[in-house]
Amino acid sequence: MTSFTWCCSLVLALLIFGPRAQASLSATEVARQSEEATRVKGYQAEAKLTTTTAADKGKIKEFKMWRQLQADLINYNTMTRFHKPSSIKDEGVLILEREGDASDVLLYLPRFKKIRRVENSNQSGSFMGSAFSYADIAPSHYTDLNLKLLANESCPVGEGECYVLRGEGKTPQVKRRSGYDYTKTWINTKTLLTMRIEGYSKEGKRIRRVDFGKYASTDGKGGANVAQEMSAIRDKDGLKTQFQILDLKVDERIKGSLFTRENLENP
């Protein structure tokens, strides 16, 4: 076979099998790979929430957050400790994700020196007065969702083509915790990074939209990525919040003792 024939065969093979190989990814596989692309074993970061309403130019809350991947390589432990404004200084939120999407959410209120639990159904409520919910901070994983690939279309945020996935909680508990009957997720076909998530009610009304931007590789070599900016819009009242990660430090040896009640009540 001549080299010309080889080249033609290769191009043909790529044309036939290449796109099919991409298209043949199941919705679950896309979601799994997308989670893998952002899987960081542990990190700590300074973060900022800027919430704006029609009347208010912006309320800023600053906090430190720590995240650690659990041994199942799916769920995370997340600890946040607020330090600005002073009126909420030392307030903490500990989210311990559990199998079956039933996270333990514990709030530490320094004024009372007490920890308060947040019931599952209330985890769809506002996270510290922002347009994000607790469930957006610790979102459902692909293992908790029935996923369906709806389409391939231009990404609504950033450039390129996106898979559009429809995800529906496998159980009523998953739906109640997230506050969404189903979600639509746009995932970049090349990078497999999530670009947008929209949550919908049973009636098909959009509840919230979260856009992801400024992904940065945690090792600078194209390793796992963390979104440095997220913005959420709550449709019912137009509340907008920008979540910025200002100073990210990957810490794969992050201590498990950070994610305990004892640490939560010891700011």
Binding site: R116, R117, E119, N120
Partner: peptide
């Protein structure tokens, strides 16, 4: 004792 159920604590 405290226990978080689906909609109550």
């Amino acid at each position: 004792y405290s226990h978080a159920f689906e909609s109550v604590v």
